[in-house]
Design a protein around this nucleic acid. Structure first.
Lengths: 202, 202, 202, 202
DNA sequence: AATGAATGAGTCTTCATTCAT
DNA sequence: TATGAATGAAGACTCATTCAT
């Protein structure tokens, strides 16, 4: 049982290359989201980015490496975005905490779908996803305990799991192609506020 | 009643054949759940079912046909299972309605993962999934309106979307490989009861 | 530094398959000998054997596996062939020993070139080649010591290295496309007889 | 004088360029010897020479051109080196002729491996190798006839083929990574002396 | 001149599907 | 009917070579 050391994305050295890399990751994100990881071909990705297949491989030595790069970008954006939530959270009532968390999800919508598609298909990502989720839940738990000192660690942890699951409804609603996702998101805010309210009251 | 283009699974005439078909669908379900639709090969499926690849094609003329058969089996089981919910629902308080719905999900756990894997990958299934989900939501809306006559159709429909999304937390919890999924399911029951309670109070 | 376990050739289960496998190995042997391992494509090999590329991969899961199978066939034939030499060697004078060894090489000519082409290119073969050569030299040394009891182990070992190198001249002569290789092979017999004579006289 | 179709290496004008060209050829020689012609990439060669891929193509318009340049260098060195042998050969006994020829091979050891790797892989070289070998054999035949006037042209030619083949044992011994190649080279001297002695005695 | 990104034809390999036995 | 060999289109990836900077 050896730890797979797969070659990772190569840093472009010239300015031109950076744009290329971004375009390629974007193309990958779109296609992975649309058709799934396996069904997306490297040729397609290169085409959508307006590059030759060779150029794609110049920067990403394998399909998996591209997936990893995409995942990393998502993880970075998510972390930065959640830091803002933590900053604003202290002292807020349940309703506002719920809104903060829902808005956080809304902001990440774009990369989300692509990353989800990866998590079940790419070996390296499956394992990297769990700690990321754990970290997120830990941070949610902290926010909850800060808001209600009476909460035990275990209670906060369990509530954080539920909160994170409710948050997942947001991108799911977008995926249903519902004509009126907005009122549904409002309804989700209500759901989350209800639950957090209950947790804080305990 | 449905627009069928694909050749569908051939009905096995003998008892022996039925077992084999069931074994093949089971094998497909397991593997699709484990590795995803694309990553699973027909040869693997045949092997796990202890059949030759030729036999697999005897009953299912294509990979897609097998996927469809699996989906159909799931849809039938789900429909039958939900009928029982509808039977027991009338007159129940929010808490009990929530439990009924959660238990429904719990019972379907097995085929669920495999079917999810299909829904994003197999063309024919993507389209068949939506009406199935719509039907489920419609039936949930009916239950809600039966429990609260003051609910408008639109309100009930929106609430049904949220309820169905909350129900999806149940299989998701199983997937997290959490050591203690039980308390979390309890927490999910609480969440759903809370929301349904709110809806019925409106 | 892990030991590479590469999947090996699959045994054909039907009679038809055995002929196929032999034809494929033959095609590989020819092409490897003609153009070298790297320059030969799997498609070419399949074509020359009158098979589809998929059929080639049915039996040999990789180019390397085909190379290995070819090497194994050569090693088996060589071992069997040399056993005959050992049987006939005892009591012979230098001249006849030399002829026996040259004839041994002559008989192996066919697979030889292909196998040589592999030995520098295929990872797994490089390592398997050395022990084979060591074994051959050991058996030559035994023959020499049986013919001359005065020979020390070291002396016999050194002489065996030289003898085996002289034997390599035989296929090399064929490769020079000389119009008259026969007299040259006679000359090689003389060379080897001269050297073995000297060794036995020591 | 030669029929040149391929564009050949460009002559570098400055001193700096000459060093770079030498470094590139050296890098090529090392890598061809280590991994073979086909398995060596132009990028690798440039890297090992500490140059950019563009620089490599500045001097050698194709991989084949680099191979040719390497071959030419080897051919020049070999010719120069053999001239020294011819100078010293007249009037020597068999034993000393043998030593002269073995020492010649020993001196050329370095480029030898790389050039061997080319000779089977590069179209242009395959053809250029034969005349070179013919020339060498011709010069060996001349030395033999000078030492023994009784030798017919054909006899000398045949003997020269054998002598040149025996000489090839020298680099082969180095390749066997034998811990004690020295005594084996001594043994090769003995073999060659034996044969040349026989030829001169005829 | 020097650099390294861009290109795309060509390779190995996989796998759904067909078909002879 | 059952079997598994045969097929070939399609996909990931490589690398000699070109070209803009």
């Amino acid at each position: 049982m050896s730890i797979e050391i797969l070659p990772t994305a190569k840093e472009p050295k010239r300015e031109r290359g950076k744009q290329r890399v971004a375009a390629l990751i974007d193309a990958g994100a779109e296609l992975f989201a649309e058709k799934g990881y396996e069904a997306t071909t490297m040729t397609e990705i290169a085409q959508r980015a307006g590059a030759a297949i060779g150029s794609l491989y110049q920067f990403f030595p394998s399909k998996e490496a591209l997936a990893e790069a995409l995942f990393n970008r998502y993880a970075e954006r998510a972390a930065a975005s959640f830091a803002r939530v933590e900053e604003l959270a202290p002292g807020r009532p349940a309703r506002e905490l719920a809104d903060l968390l829902i808005d956080y999800k809304l902001a990440l919508r774009t990369d989300r779908d692509a990353t989800i598609a990866l998590s079940s298909s790419v070996a390296g990502i499956v394992e990297r996803r769990k700690p990321l989720g754990d970290a997120l839940r830990g941070r949610i738990a902290s926010i909850l305990r800060a808001a209600n000192r009476a909460l035990s660690e275990d209670e906060a942890a369990a509530a954080a799991v539920i909160v994170s699951q409710v948050m997942k409804i947001v991108p799911a609603l977008a995926a249903t192609e519902n004509e009126r996702p907005l009122p549904l998101i409002g309804e989700t805010r209500k759901l989350l506020a209800l639950y957090i309210g209950e947790v804080l009251r305990t």
